[in-house]
Design a protein around this nucleic acid. Structure first.
Lengths: 241, 241
DNA sequence: CATCGCGTTTGACCTTGGTCAACGTGCGCG
DNA sequence: CGCGCACGTTGACCAAGGTCAAACGCGATG
């Protein structure tokens, strides 16, 4: 979940939530949460392959192990809104519905672990620990979606791109801090469809940030953040009563 | 939850999910889900009073009994994004965080029932039925937030307003169909901040729909839908593989 | 009844970002 | 090697929607 646009607020802990099972080595019956489930099977996808499509029955829930998956929705005339970039550790396909509302496409070679959706729910119906984990996981996705909503609904192009970069750097920053050099696994078109902008605007805005000496394009998809503080200022106004 | 923008996809059932407890009359121990909880205390709010504010500790979860509550987030410079209009039956304040990310304000005189957040979670930790209900409730909120995201990120002003009206009419339509006359409990400014538009654009767009003979302003806050089909067409492109 | 004030509508103008089109650039493949 | 293709950048122009300002409608209040 490309969460934590507005990142003070949305902890980056999303990926750990469902993974954390305090006791790893006990017998299956005594474990709780995900640990109680069969380890799902692994599936691999090439770049641009779909993990699932809008309208497909929600048969599985997937956990990304490697790669980045784009969650999006397409309008009839081709406009596309990307809702989320799912990174390793995160789950996709959670939800209450019988069908997927959104499509999921691999941006690059991707490895996912599959869990049967009904098995997951049946187990959850007996294991409140797992059910609560699901609850918390979706809650985090919700917070992320809402944060993006604020960005798209209220912020300017510059603010959106700055927010996006800040967030990516936080997320890449393994653990504590933010990373200086951020790798963008997605194309400009994806960034545009995520932020509600066109390719051209994204490109121009990145150029503007480069000219402002806030960032530096290292190698195409790699961006070096020269002035993280300024970048955060540009992502504009957090909080308020 | 002003869900089901894109409403084929997001069932309007949100409000029923947490209410449905198949067995009502058994003893507390044998009940499941919400029914097992103490009936929370009731609180009343006047128009514009806050149920909670961004940054407040998440001590309670509230169920709307009467009135409409605006869930929003404010940027430092006064820009505001409304994330949701919560209607009777719905819950607000669910989530995994220790603090509220958003503020909740009554649009009109409102009655809510309060449940202690920690009590709720403790009960859920023992009752998988309740935990699953929470999971499904948040999942619906997530679907709603994402649907709004698509609208704001991709749709034009006209499309957004048409989507908004379609959805409101569906929601008001008690049960099966859509209502011909829709009451808007919120001001233009709220609609604007919900759809990522200005008051003026909302006003102009409503006027345009009136001139197009798609709707008719009945009495200020009441809008009569003359041509529901056309209105849905205007809300533009659903689905796609 | 007249006035006030809030919310809405309408109009004129301007800005941001979208559109269309050309040009770069890096990479894989013949 | 060089061609082609996919992706990115840049520029010129355009339009949707934002901004600013004025006027309207209507219920509340003196």
């Amino acid at each position: 979940m490309l969460s934590s646009l507005n990142s003070e607020l949305v902890p980056v802990a999303a990926q750990s939530i469902l993974l954390s099972s305090p006791v790893q080595s006990r017998s299956p019956e005594s474990r709780t949460g995900l640990a109680r489930l069969e380890r799902g099977s692994v599936r691999r996808f090439m770049s641009k392959e779909h993990v699932f499509c809008e309208g497909d029955p929600r048969t599985h829930v997937f956990q990304i192990e490697e790669g980045v998956v784009t969650i999006y929705r397409m309008l009839t005339d081709g406009r596309r809104q990307i809702i989320d970039f799912a990174y390793p550790g995160e789950f996709i396909g959670l939800g209450a519905s019988a069908e997927h509302y959104f499509s999921a496409e691999a941006t690059s070679a991707t490895r996912v672990r599959c869990y049967g959706a009904s098995a997951l729910e049946e187990t959850a119906a007996r294991d409140p620990g797992l059910a609560l984990q699901l609850y918390k996981a979706v809650s985090l996705e919700l917070a992320a979606a809402r944060a993006l909503l604020v960005a798209i609904g209220q912020r300017s192009a510059l603010e959106r791109v700055a927010t996006f970069l800040t967030m990516l750097s936080r997320r890449s920053g393994s653990g504590n801090g933010s990373e200086r050099v951020v790798h963008l696994p997605m194309r400009r078109a994806d960034i545009g469809d995520f932020l509600g902008l066109t390719i051209e605007t994204v490109s121009r805005t990145i150029t503007k940030l480069r000219v402002m000496r806030v960032i530096k394009i290292a190698h195409g998809a790699d961006i070096e953040i020269l002035d993280a503080e300024r970048l955060e200022e540009l992502s504009e106004g957090e909080a308020c009563g």
